[in-house]
């Protein structure tokens, strides 16, 4: 197999396919995952190979989909439940936050819930206020849930494979704007370890800490900052928000003395808020400037592409903000 050109979507499918091939206990369940092939095509044709007993089309019952996965995971299966849009997570929150996340703890360590909840979020398809949100903070705010958010084609494959090996429930949030992104996957290569951030661009002046699609916006901004302003910004892709790899963040920020956090989620009480608070607490003596949050506006997402695009950080906003940190 080795190196192959593929897309974010196909890399996800490859990971599911390999997991199902090597582990008979892996099952998929969710709305439209079977015959339809997934709302975004991730599970296309898997039902043909693995059958309707392992690729299970469900009714539109998000709470019971997650609850079923919880019970299956407790009794020997490794379910991958799909939530078509992360915006529907409210429907499932009891099963996710009160059941999946707390079962190991409440039951004194007797059993874990090794399930993966795949879903996707974010803007980019003019999908409106109920299909465009970035709700990772809900998950990150719940101890017991792991949270993975792949930004690259490589991670679409490797992070999903790694998620399927975790002993605890993993919420795996894809970005709807990335499915057609091209890249390469080397299934045989040693991936970046689970729970470890990936420094995608080095830079001595500023550290941009981000994840998911904003990684790409940050990389564009970093290029502009370098070529047009001589500012060298590092871009760190967190890959997982739980575990959070602060050991990689700390030395980078201490060296640069400046940090910016970029997140598509709304600013208030969001992931960016948590990251900024931690960096401020942990690296206070090294900081030249306040840690800056470049995050989603505290508003719902509009259908209008113009309003939608400007509701979340853009490469321009990231670059412009960074420039202001160097008067």
């Amino acid at each position: 197999m080795a190196l192959q050109e593929t897309t974010y979507r196909d890399a996800l499918r490859l990971a599911l396919h390999e997991a199902m091939q090597t582990d008979d206990t892996v099952i998929l369940l969710g709305e439209e995952v079977g015959r339809y092939g997934g709302a975004y095509g991730v599970t296309k044709d898997l039902i043909k190979e693995f059958g309707a007993d392992r690729v299970i089309d469900t009714p539109i019952s998000e709470a019971a989909i997650v609850g079923t996965a919880v019970g299956a995971a407790m009794t020997g299966l490794r379910p991958v439940a799909e939530l078509m849009y992360v915006d529907f997570i409210g429907m499932t929150m009891d099963q996710l936050a009160n059941q999946a996340a707390k079962i190991r703890y409440m039951f004194g360590g007797q059993i874990g819930v090794p399930m993966v909840l795949r879903t996707q979020g974010g803007t980019g398809r003019s999908a409106g206020a109920q299909h465009s949100q970035s709700l990772e903070a809900y998950v990150m705010h719940t101890p017991g849930l792991r949270l993975a958010m792949p930004a690259t084609v490589e991670d679409a494959y490797h992070l999903l494979r790694q998620s399927l090996q975790q002993p605890d429930p993993v919420v795996f949030i894809e970005h709807k704007g990335l499915y057609t992104m091209k890249g390469t996957v080397d299934a045989d290569a040693e991936p970046v370890a689970w729970g470890q951030a990936n420094l995608l661009r080095a830079g001595a002046d500023l550290v941009i800490v981000t994840y998911s699609r904003q990684v790409h916006h940050a990389l564009v901004a970093a290029q502009t900052l370098h070529s047009e302003h001589g500012i060298n910004a590092a871009v760190l892709d967190l890959r997982t928000l739980n575990p959070l790899d602060f050991d990689t963040i700390r030395p980078l920020v201490e060296d640069a003395g400046r940090a910016m956090v970029v997140s598509e989620g709304v600013m208030t009480c969001g992931v960016a808020a948590e990251l900024a608070a931690r960096i401020t607490e942990e690296c206070f003596d090294f900081l030249e400037d306040p840690v800056v949050r470049v995050a989603g506006e505290d508003i719902p997402i509009s259908v209008s592409p113009l309003l939608e695009q400007n509701s979340v950080p853009t490469p321009e906003l990231i670059a412009e903000t960074a420039r202001k940190m160097f008067p």
């Binding site: 206990t25 099952i27 007993d53 299970i56 709470a63 019971a64 997650v66 609850g67 079923t68 996965a69 919880v70 019970g71 299956a72 995971a73 407790m74 009794t75 020997g76 299966l77 379910p79 099963q95 059941q99």
Partner: peptide
């Protein structure tokens, strides 16, 4: 706790 038995039922069948 109700939906967990649906999952356990899937496991039992599998």
């Amino acid at each position: 706790g109700i939906p967990a038995v649906v999952g356990a039922g899937l496991s039992a069948r599998h």
